[in-house]
Design a protein around this nucleic acid. Structure first.
Length: 199
DNA sequence: GTAGGGGTAATC
DNA sequence: GATTACCCCTAC
């Protein structure tokens, strides 16, 4: 695990969404690094020490590259005009948040439990207090399939993929791919039986 | 009412 | 040009 990689992973999380691109790159405190590691990898402080290559390695001493934010996707900013734009077709967007790793995990768990297409059930079980509605779950699943299932064929595409906030871990990608294959076969069976999607 | 698919804006 | 999140339309 390259230290520079880690910087690229947690740096956007530490960034102030209202200060993007950041006016200055700051070296976070070890406690902040620890907090971000536990957030990204779901590990506690004890396990974090395993990431250090040598005993003297201090995660807080990671060197932040100048303008490290270049090439990374910043928080989404959408211009919302109170008077609207584009005439009658303008609509306010309720939510502009990027999906967190935790949300993706919950989505995968939901699909695992209820199957692809049962978005209302996934919503009520795992996203009851979230702003994500069933269509958001559907859209995110579509994006995940696209992101996980399409092999990288060009340098440009590979570059673009690297700009994603937090790369998914291999286990999660395998789960998504597995569930996609399962859903394809079960939908065939459902169609054969004459069943529709219910919620 | 719900899900699928297309379209679009924002971001790089 | 590609990706992502959101919205709209349509079919069931």
């Amino acid at each position: 695990m390259e230290p520079a990689e880690e910087v690229q992973i947690w740096a956007p999380i530490l960034a102030d969404p209202l200060d993007w691109p950041p006016s200055s790159a700051t070296i976070p405190l070890p406690s902040q690094v620890e907090e971000c590691f536990s957030y990204v990898y779901g590990v506690d402080g004890m396990e974090i020490s395993k990431f250090a290559q040598e005993a003297e390695d201090d995660l807080g001493d990671l060197i932040v590259k100048e303008k490290w934010w270049r090439g990374l996707r910043g928080p989404r900013k959408r211009r919302i005009f109170p008077w609207g734009s584009g005439g009658m077709n303008f609509h306010r967007r309720k939510n502009n948040e990027h999906w967190t790793l935790d949300e993706v995990r919950k989505l995968v768990k939901g699909v695992k439990t209820y199957g692809v297409g049962r978005w209302t059930m996934v919503k009520s079980r795992y996203f009851s207090s979230s702003v994500r509605d069933p269509s958001h779950l559907k859209d995110k699943w579509r994006n995940l399939l696209k992101a996980c299932g399409v092999p990288c064929t060009s340098i440009r595409k590979e570059k673009a993929q690297k700009t994603m906030f937090r790369p998914l871990d291999t286990e999660l990608i395998e789960q998504i791919q597995g569930l996609a294959i399962d859903s394809a076969s079960t939908s065939k069976i459902r169609k054969h039986r004459g069943e529709g999607t219910t919620s």
